[in-house]
């Protein structure tokens, strides 16, 4: 069941993205930024975690999860260290996506040659 809902919810996120591209003529960079900010806002309102419970990877794979995790890390640290934690804790949970992108980006640059 969770596989089905992961598919549907993840697909719906992409449809919203496609509408942003086609109807509002946004370029991908701006659309992605809006998505991340939306994710952060949704988590701020406490709506993103129930969505993850419901849809699993359908909510954790789209880029909105990036914003969600940033807020999560900040809040986790803030609970322990107060207001300073908001600054220091932001990358606490998120590191995986960015570090994986950097590591595999450099490896990819060694492995592959640019085309065209």
């Amino acid at each position: 069941m969770i596989f089905f809902w992961a598919f549907v919810v993840g697909g719906l996120f992409c449809v919203i993205g496609q509408i942003m591209f086609d109807v509002f003529k946004l370029n991908p960079g701006i659309a992605l930024t809006i998505f991340v900010i939306t994710g952060a806002v949704l988590d701020g309102l406490g709506l993103y975690d129930p969505l993850i419970d419901f849809a699993g990877a359908g909510a954790t794979v789209p880029i909105t999860n990036f914003g969600n995790q940033l807020v999560h890390g900040a809040m986790q640290e803030a609970e322990q260290h107060g207001i300073i934690g908001v600054v220091t804790g932001i990358f606490e949970v998120t590191s995986a996506g960015i570090s994986a992108a950097i590591i595999f980006g450099v490896i990819g640059a060694f492995l592959f040659k640019p085309k065209g």
């Binding site: 069941m1 809902w5 975690d49 419970d53 419901f54």
Partner: peptide, 9 residues
């Protein structure tokens, strides 16, 4: 049940 997972927490 899956449709109740929204209120899981």
């Amino acid at each position: 049940k899956h449709h109740k997972r929204f209120q899981l927490a």
